[in-house]
Design a protein around this nucleic acid. Sequence first.
DNA 1: GAGCACTGC
Length: 780
Amino acid sequence: METTILTVEEDVVGPSTIPEASCHPGKEPIRVDNDVEGRAETPSDRMENGADGKILDDMPSMPLLPSNAQAQNQNKGGNFTSGDHRTQNLLARKQWIAQQRKSLPIAAVEKRLVDEVRKNDTLIIVGETGSGKTTQLPQFLCNSGFCHDGLLIGITQPRRVAAVTVAKRVAEECNVELGQKVGYAIRFEDVTSSSTRIKYMTDGLLVREALLDPFLSNYSTIVVDEAHERTVHTDVLLGLLKKVQHERSLIIVKRQNPCHTAAKKLIMPDKEDKTQSINNLKPYQNAKLTPLKLIIMSASLDARGFSEYFDGAKAVHIQGRQYPVDVLYTYHPEPDYLDATLITIFQIHLGEGPGDILAFLTGQEEIESVERLVHERARQLPEGSQKILTAPIYSSLPSEQQMNVFKPAPSGSRKVILATNIAETSVTIPGIKYVIDPGLVKARSYNPVTGMESLIIIPTSKAQALQRSGRAGREGPGKCFRLYPESEFGKLMDSTVPEIKRCNLSNVVLQLKALGIKDIFSFDFMEKPSRTGIVKSMEQLYLLGALTDSGELSDPVGLQMARLPLDPIYSKALIIAHEFKCLEEMLIVVAMLSVESIFHFPREKIEEATAAKKSFSSTEGDHITLVNVYRASAECLEKSKAANSKEKTMEKSLNKWCRDNFINSRSLRHARDVHRQIKGHMQQMGLSISSCGDDMVQFRRCLTASFFLNAALKQPDGSYRALLSGQNVQIHPSSVLRAKKPDCIIFNELIRTSQNYVRNVTRIDPLWLPELAPQSFAED
DNA sequence: GAGCACTGC
């Protein structure tokens, strides 16, 4: 791999990039190389964004800018703001932005970077934290003519919040209105227009776009940011982009030289390669196509892998701006990492200078228990010692409580943030000087043979450990305490196993099929998922009717399923529900099943929360319970609407309703978004939204016809046997059927934590199975 | 008797 290090001139201010680690017992030079540029939205950011009281899912945002903060304060004071003042503020802010841009490490290498992009069709950029690559590179390219003929520069992000906040920032830097020259597109939100040239978006969304425009012909350049995170979308996208880039250049060759064999084949393919031409090529033969520039931005540890995948593409390295972080290890392995975390918290608290602590734990339960222990031990501190506060953060925690991590600790006290992985990339918390890293993470894994998902606690990768320690060096020099010996660090995997190798592939296969890829096994993945995984998902798609006997996408079912942004089994459920005349109910169920944890159970109010959930419970099972919750919330909104409330008031009354009923308002809002979107798709497909009314037998029969792949029978010992996989399972304690234990059930999720559990369960009549799914349950 | 993190025309 050819690597160029683009160095920043000496006179650029800012701390050095490569911190020397002072470790115990030995020394290991650690290069802190994390890659995140946003941070979670703080309450003041939200005021700035005008989203008062609305918690945006872990919304990161660029740092508050001083002049604007000033303006905020003035407005808050209720004093009049003179036009002059405002102009001055705006001017000051503009200058400040220009100055910030100039001082970014990437600014010094603009010309050379643009040259590299011109020279290389594919370029790997290793940009350290704070280098400014995400915000600056697209502007450099746009200014250098990469947006010619109305073509776009697309930049993909793994997270919505990043796409939105970076787009906002760049629009401001360009001094344009968001949605004009600079815009963004994420699910449920498209803030672009015909004048958009720089478009930030989620990687999943670009995959979806490729379904409509297989050559991505609107784009001159695509930048895949945070590629090292290797989400399943990133991996699908990389394979797709490689293919599109190749095909676009072939078409251009063909135009210049009509006799070129490969190009000829592409446009007039052999019989067995028919899909390509019919689906993709014809409409584009005359379109203006340019070679596709690809830029992959990654963390340093993974650059080599990307370069190899893209046929030895050149990599350039851009320095970042990160303060040094001392990394310390333990002498011996710690048998009890929770206890070790607790001890380290108090060692820092009593022995180190001011600064908040961030401790990485694996889940809610650990966080709650460490939080209790910290409080207990804090009480034993001598009178007059500095106070210690805790702030937990994990994804399913309601947003209002998540916001506590951003409140600065009162003077004379120290804040300890107890976090899951959410604080690794999604949320950046200011004020962190110390990081405690036990070196573990809860990860999802998937067994394609049994269809069993599990959540297991495994060691982090090196890249993750670096990412975590980097969290201590955002605002000044910091310290990271790794609760394992230094020798263990060397044994860690370089990077986390890509998600595509540990998830159900049904959706990936369905999408690739819809993109015209006939042979999934020979698709050029950066890392190939297991053959078994592909075979199993194809089997599942076949059983759902999405694939024909010969493995082609079926018409219309397969095509319809591919159009829906849902798990294939849910897409099929909707199509079936139309036949059963209960699409209204199924739409609600699918929306509610597509989001995280609707119910919230805070430990200290567990009884109230249980009672609240009981009021929605259906004796038939969890699916109808979810319908009850959705309808009750809709009723609450209707009432508010009837009282002529404004949008904001309605939102508030819904939030209050959620609090009163222990419903996670963020999840519910998300479910409402999904519902609206999918309903739109259904109507576009011409499927009428019918309701089965009170006929819950009809609805349960429909659930059976939809989820027959997940049927289970009660065993004499009270456990269940999943009929198609043979797994022995229990009903998850969160299910309303946990105590009832009906004879036969269907479920939506099979997950192993402490035991094999099935979640989201409904009671069915076992005789319905051979009747409604004869292909799997032949009568005998 | 219980839950990593993301995401989708």
